[in-house]
């Protein structure tokens, strides 16, 4: 019984970070039908920008509580600057094209971004942990946890609910759903599908950058972060069913818990747990937990 609480807290905290990686990827796929390998780059760029602005704020002697808006602003900045631009200049030309071509284009973008990050931010690790430090710790079941870990769990829930509300109860959400259901009919009805694609892609970039930014207070950022994120992101998105936001959330919880259980009972298996889970799920349900063969839902 003593072990249940740490398993749950650690599992959900790990799941929340994994969810932030996968949710934007699955959202972009659900709307644009593009497997975006460059998603990992947006994750790491979000982390670099958050650390850079956070570092500047710390050196300027600003309150550490400002770290939280800085994390959000960093993600918004990355999304605003890169989202519409990348969609309009690269992604747009891959719509309706074979998946191999889409992967090649987005993989090329990923490689370019990787090198650009090294040029701009250098090759060493960067840290900015003010947000983690200022929140302090809590003792649960005799083990001390970072309050920041608990905040991540809450934020992941907020993002799931917000996306649900956005898609089901706002005009923008309904426009997106209409374009997802049938782009041609949507255009005939007067919907600006291009704009919807651009907005959906930008939301995807924002979620990736937010995930990267939120990871930095505990883990910092170093070259290679984007590659690790995209591999894990694809695994989680595939487990949940590509294009399924709730599926990504459930898959993140399963993967998070499986990794934590492995660390407690069979540490050697921890690195492969996401892929073992993916293997088992896809053997039983080839379209993922929430996926179906033909349906295009979000």
């Amino acid at each position: 019984m003593d072990i249940i609480i740490p398993l749950l807290v650690d599992g959900l905290a790990a799941a929340s970070l994994i969810f932030f990686i996968a949710v934007g990827l699955t959202l972009v796929f659900s709307v644009l039908r593009v497997l975006n390998v460059a998603h990992g780059s947006f994750y790491s760029i979000g982390a670099y920008v958050a650390v850079s602005i956070g570092g500047w704020a710390a050196s300027a002697g600003l309150s550490p509580w400002l770290s939280f808006p800085i994390l959000l602003i960093s993600a918004a900045l990355v999304a605003a600057l890169l989202g519409p631009f990348i969609e309009a200049t690269f992604i747009r030309y891959t719509y309706g094209k074979p998946e191999a071509l889409q992967i090649l284009v987005t993989f090329a973008l990923f490689l370019i971004f990787e090198d650009l990050q090294k040029l701009v931010f250098g090759v060493q690790a960067h840290y900015q942990d003010a947000a983690m430090q200022v929140l302090g710790v809590s003792e649960i079941g005799g083990i001390i946890y970072l309050n920041y870990q608990l905040l991540l769990i809450a934020l992941a829930v907020v993002v799931v609910v917000s996306l649900r509300l956005l898609m089901r109860h706002t005009r923008l959400g309904k426009l997106i759903l209409a374009v997802v259901a049938d782009p041609e009919v949507s255009v005939t009805l007067g919907i600006n599908a291009r704009q919807v694609y651009s907005i959906a892609f930008t939301i995807g970039v924002f979620l990736a950058a937010l995930g990267g930014a939120l990871a930095t207070p505990t883990s910092g950022v170093a070259p290679g972060l984007g590659a690790e994120a995209i591999v894990l992101g694809f695994a989680v998105a595939a487990i949940g069913g590509l294009g399924q936001i709730e599926g990504a959330a459930l898959a993140a919880v399963i993967v998070g818990l499986s990794r934590v259980i492995a660390i407690y009972y069979a540490p050697a298996f921890e690195p492969v747990m996401p892929y073992l889970v993916m293997l088992v799920v896809l053997l039983v349900r080839p379209y993922g937990l929430f996926g179906t063969a033909q349906a295009r839902r979000i």
Binding site: I3, P6, T218
Partner: peptide, 12 residues
């Protein structure tokens, strides 16, 4: 990047 689960495991 994150050792939080390992830290819990060790603390336990």
């Amino acid at each position: 990047a994150s050792f939080n689960t390992e830290i819990s495991r060790i603390a336990a």
